[in-house]
Amino acid sequence: MVSGSLHTRSFGYVDPNFPNPGGVNDTSIIIYGYTPSIALAAFAAAWFFVHLVLHTAQTCKFRSWWWITFSVGMIFEIVGYIARSLSAKQDPYNLNYFVLNYFFIVTAPVFIAAGIYTILSALIARLGSQYTFLRPTFILAFFITSDVISTIVQIAGATLIGVKESNSEDPTTANNILLAGLAYQVFAMSVFVILMLTFEFRARRAIKERRLQVFCLSFTVATLMVYMRTIFRLIETAEGLGANLSTTEVYFACLEFAPIALVALLLCIWHPGRCLGPKVRDSRERFAKRHGSDPASVQY
């Protein structure tokens, strides 16, 4: 059984108002660096549940099954914040709650990003490959594979951190593993952002002709929100356990929850299935025919 006494290292946090139950799965400190807010966790779970329903309903309505990965991302967010709620309400020292919270909240943006990568591929198919340097199939394969690899490394690092803390051992190596996964994810996402912005700039006339300006704007903001969230995670991990970013929940709320919540809202209002249609590799001709004989007559 893990001892309920104060952690011997300087970054250990024990809530004076929440005695350590000393259960078999309890660590000697609260790994979060604070006791999570039940209000934030419950609100986040409810927010993502509402958007799970709205996104899935629109995906079914417009038969845009390629966007179903976003709904999977919403499910992961919900499970992650339910685990965080259990940490907040029942036992913030519980290692299982922490690992579940971290696993699902960190993994959720992988599915969300997969949908974002697919949007760019769909836009290239509709507007023309002459505006980009890479083929849509390569974009999907490379960036999705990069996200999967980086996330596996991050989860391995986070799990090791939990184990090390549970055994009152130095978690530096585990934190470095987590940092390596995040660094690669930021690198890959940086390449994607440059590719996306370059494509949108070169295809700006075609975007205007198809009246896709508002959709592309929401897509751009959504991408930058995911990118900002990834950068936050990298800086937080680089600071190390016990630093200001990792032990202040307001940063988590503003730079982890809020960006993904905004992405869910934007792409719910301008749903890719409604704006781009049911197929990823839809040709420009079929796209124009489905929405009207004159491409410029398409309304968004």
Rank of each mutant, 00 (worst) to 15 (best):
L182T: 03
S129H: 12
R63E: 11
A243F: 04
P16I: 04
T8A: 11
L217Y: 11
I31M: 10
L262A: 15
T69M: 11
A57T: 12
R63G: 11
S146K: 01
L160A: 11
A57V: 12
I116V: 14
I75G: 05
S283R: 07
V79I: 15
A174D: 01
F11P: 03
W270L: 15
W66N: 07
W270G: 12
T59I: 15
L95E: 10
A238H: 10
S283A: 09
F138M: 13
P92E: 04
F11G: 07
P16V: 01
V153A: 06
A183F: 01
V24N: 10
I235L: 10
S87T: 02
W65G: 10
Y93M: 08
T151E: 05
S10R: 00
V99G: 12
R210G: 05
S166F: 13
S64V: 12
Y300K: 12
W47Y: 08
P19N: 00
W66S: 08
L86E: 10
R211V: 09
W66F: 10
Q58T: 15
R63L: 11
L52Q: 06
T198A: 07
F257N: 05
A41F: 00
F257K: 05
P272K: 11
R205C: 01
Y102E: 15
T56K: 08
V214Q: 11
N101P: 03
T59G: 13
A174H: 03
F199H: 03
Q185D: 00
V148C: 05
G23F: 01
V14H: 06
R204W: 07
T107W: 14
